[in-house]
Structure formats: C-alpha cells, structure tokens
C-alpha cells in the first residue's frame, strides 16, 4: 500500500499521524504535544525512522506508547518504519509544546512551572495553592490543593 501523501511530504504526513497518538495516561495530550517524538526521518530509499524518548526512566506508559505508535504506523502503510529509542538529550518538561500546555490546563492539570514558582489552580486560577505531595497519580505529576476554592489538583512536574 502506498499512501498518496507520502510522495507529497512523507515526513509531514508522519508527524500528522503521530499527532493522533494519545498519551495513554493523559489522553488529552498527543505524544507530539508531550514532546517525546524526537525525529521523523525518511530516506530516499523509502526507509522511515521514528525517534521516541521516554519521559521518566520508569514511566510504565513508555511501552504502551511504543505499541500505539507501531499500530498507527502499521495501519497507515508504514509497517517497515523503524522505532528508535533516543535518550540524549534527556526529556524535560520544556519539551511540552505550547498547545500541550493549553490542553493540560483545560483538562484540569496545572501545566509545569519551575520548582521555585507555585502552580495556579486550574479551576479558579488562584495562586494560593499548596503542594500536598511531590508524587501524584503518574510519575510526571505532583499533587496540590487550592486554598482559595478547595480543589485538589495535579500539576505536571517541571524536571
């Protein structure tokens, strides 16, 4: 099978396909929003290489993401694509895109702020919040509470 768009702009098409793969733990984010797709390369001979980087060394979602990417590529005629693990430079919350930050906030997760700053409550936007735990429901989140509206919320950690 040959996808028509491959000849027009195969790399652009692949980025488009990857941006439809959700993060399994925060499904409002795609893996492109999360900044874990490091490269998409197409060679003149038709080879395709996709570089993925893990967020945290122990993130259990890493393998699920790999499988989802594989399925998405297989379904669109890229069964021959090679998935590479890229460790350097290490992922940090800086890789999260602006679109990704906005999606997080709308979903009720405070986007990352530096450790010295205080995340705003995603519900009422107050800065009168306190950290309950540096560890939340997934490796990438910490747990907080808003003192203004009383809402407990997750914050996407800054690392």
């Amino acid at each position: 099978m040959t996808h028509p768009a491959r000849h027009a702009g195969p790399e652009a098409h692949l980025w488009h396909l990857l941006s439809a793969v959700p993060d399994p733990e925060i499904p409002v984010l795609s893996i492109v929003d999360l900044g874990i797709v490091r490269h998409v390369r197409c060679s003149a001979e038709g080879g395709v290489s996709i570089g993925l980087t893990p967020t945290y060394s122990g993130c259990p979602a890493t393998e699920v993401i790999r499988d989802s990417v594989r399925r998405q590529l297989d379904a669109h005629g890229y069964a021959h694509a090679v998935l590479e693990e890229v460790l350097s430079p290490p992922w940090s919350s800086e890789w999260l895109t602006a679109a990704g930050r906005a999606k997080l906030a709308r979903f009720g997760i405070a986007p990352p702020v530096p450790p010295t700053a205080v995340p705003a409550c995603p519900r009422c936007h107050s800065r009168a919040t306190e950290r309950l735990s540096e560890f939340g429901s997934t490796p990438c989140k910490s747990h907080h509470r808003c003192r203004a509206c009383g809402e407990p919320f997750d914050h996407f950690k800054c690392i």
């Binding site: 893990p54 945290y56 060394s57 122990g58 735990s133 540096e134 560890f135 939340g136 490796p139 747990h143």
Partner: peptide, 20 residues
C-alpha cells in the same frame, strides 16, 4: 497514601534505570 505513591514512583525510576 502520599508516601506510598512517592516510594512507588521512586521504585519505578530505579527499575527503569536498571532496565537501561
């Protein structure tokens, strides 16, 4: 509960490092 999650998070990091 917070410490349970914290220790489990640390455990995941160490097992992930070990795998690499």
């Amino acid at each position: 509960l917070e410490e349970d999650l914290g220790l489990a998070n640390l455990a995941l990091d160490f097992v992930g490092q070990a795998r690499l």
